[in-house]
Amino acid sequence: MPVSVTNSELVYDALKGSGVRLISALPETWLVHLVRLADQDRDMILVRLAKEEEGIGISTGAHFAGLRTALLMQNHGFLQSINGIASLALLYKIPLLLMITDRGTMGERDPWQTEGGKYTRRTLDALNIVRDDLARPEEVRGKVAKAMALAQSSLSPVALLLQRDLMWEEPAA
């Protein structure tokens, strides 16, 4: 499995470090270790979803109850969630930490991932959602903490786009 275990652990530890106590997820390849880590952590509530938009509701409820959350999703899951983001999170000023795997970008080999990858960023921008890329291991902890801080202070969704260079390790030839 060429998904990076080391960097998945880095991301997971950064989420824990920023106070995340509940994670909702719909698995995709790049998220496999993150989901496993959440599942194995007795101090984390993991909610496996049928469809990503549910996660917007679950994070809203958890926020009302005082818990910090993160949402793990593929960019196509983000595209699937847009009404929930617009007419719940943005309308009601709900903080969300969206951890989005950025599929369909440079280096993508799966043809079916290539369409959504073209407009993930522009869709986030159209929704006025502040975003940043997570590409290098050394930036993970700082960027996750800052994204959480901004989500909480602005009461808004903030997105971190998990990059191929961080999540995927090409097997040695």
């Binding site: 409820g61 009302f64 109850a65 309308l91």
Partner: peptide, 25 residues
């Protein structure tokens, strides 16, 4: 009482989030 005025379908998901975060409630 929280009135979800839009986002049809997500009331039960909000309820699930509260229920998991607050088992005493």
């Amino acid at each position: 009482f929280f009135y979800l005025e839009h986002a049809m379908g997500l009331a039960s998901s909000i309820g699930l989030g509260i229920a998991l975060a607050r088992p005493d409630c």
